[in-house]
Amino acid sequence: MSELRTSAGTAQMTDDNFRLLRDFIYEHSGIYFSDTKKAQLENRLMLRLRANNLTDYDKYYYMLKYDPQASKEMRSLFDSVTTNETSFFRSPPQIQAFQEKALPELMNNRENIGEKTLRLWSAGCSTGDEPYTMAIIVKELLQERLSEWDVKIFASDISEKALRSARSATYNEYTLRSVPPEIKKKYFVPDGSQYKINDEIRMLVELQYLNFNDSKRVRLMRGFDAIFCRNVLIYFDDTAKKRFVSQLYDNLNPGGYLFIGHSESLHNISRAFKLVHFPGALGYKKE
């Protein structure tokens, strides 16, 4: 029953509302709210209702489905239903494995065929902490030789809000908590109480809006040496995971690596990759 809770001035989400909205979100993004997550979804959508001056979830659903402005609202919806939690040098052993094992191997392979290009992708980059971390690592590894290389780090997300923040490239102390002091000194410029990524690193990263559900566009992402898709698949259900992971496989060059979140698993999702044990972290290799 959809009723207005006058005291709080907020609408209540019925089970029926929940299922309709949940399915709508899933269909358009792959993000899946299981039955146990009703309260969470309600919490997140309350603000959307308020922003649109709507009194109940029926009206919100109707708006998403039939309003000519729906595509605009959808971007805001994605901002609300995504979790953008991230930090620089997140899961240090994994970052270390990338820096010490995977990246040198990939660069060697490239150099051997006389092609000094490197294409990396942070898929689900949130506020940019991950792609900038990758850029810093490439720079650390190549140092002055960076200029001899053609390096591009694509970074994409479904959340406009997160992307805006990534573009500003400005961070607070907390998200930099795992950054080694000397790295902080080298690549960050203090900006008030914040820190801004320096231009050399920023230039390596190309930010773009991309919804993983948009298979046509995802298919265009080709020729990657490594893809980070960490802590993203956890929001999908198995069907969406399978579809997306098989696309990521196609997006990689032979010999390329996929890194997913620490303690995420592709066990029931894909058998295409070779599971590699790096010291302290797992990687998935396309052979």
Binding site: A97, E100, K101, K274, L275, V276, H277, F278, P279, G280
Partner: peptide, 22 residues
Amino acid sequence: DLLAKAKEFSCGGDRLSFVLTD
């Protein structure tokens, strides 16, 4: 032994990658 190393009980030295199924 390999798995112990993969989890950083590496007894120093060996920090090698491996594919278990190979």
